[in-house]
């Protein structure tokens, strides 16, 4: 077991939990989006920590590819969520 793997992996767990908590508790739409992104970052960190094989060794490329896909997907979702939130805000302001 690599120390770095464990360190980063455990941190990832904490971040996932933090993000989840934020997503569940925040009233603000924007901050929920942020929270979900934080959670995503935690999951990505988990994957990258798993991929890590130690200094000087090539890491497992598969999780990296997965994370890249994940990031794109997360950005798409974030963009859509934000566009919706903006639309809602605009309508609320018009009221």
């Amino acid at each position: 077991m690599l120390t770095a793997q464990v360190l980063y992996g455990l941190t990832a767990c904490v971040i996932v939990a933090l993000g989840l908590r934020g997503a569940l508790l925040h009233a603000s739409l924007l901050q929920r989006v942020v929270a979900i992104n934080v959670m995503g970052a935690g999951v990505f960190m988990l994957l990258i920590a798993v991929a890590y094989r130690g200094p000087g060794l090539p890491p497992d490329p598969l999780p990296h590819a997965l994370v890249l896909t994940g990031i794109v997907v997360a950005v798409s979702a974030t963009a859509l969520a934000l566009a919706l939130a903006r639309r809602l805000h605009a309508e609320q302001d018009n009221d």
Binding site: L30, V34, A51, Y52, P59, V67, V75, H89
Partner: peptide, 30 residues
């Protein structure tokens, strides 16, 4: 640090730059 430069590039482009811009644009203006 974890030898994932591909991801780091994406994060630099997205996490540090574009997401921020997107989110800032959605911050309530009122």
């Amino acid at each position: 640090r974890l030898l994932a430069p591909d991801v780091a590039l994406a994060e630099a482009a997205i996490g540090a730059g574009l997401s921020g811009a997107l989110l800032l644009a959605a911050v309530r203006k009122q």
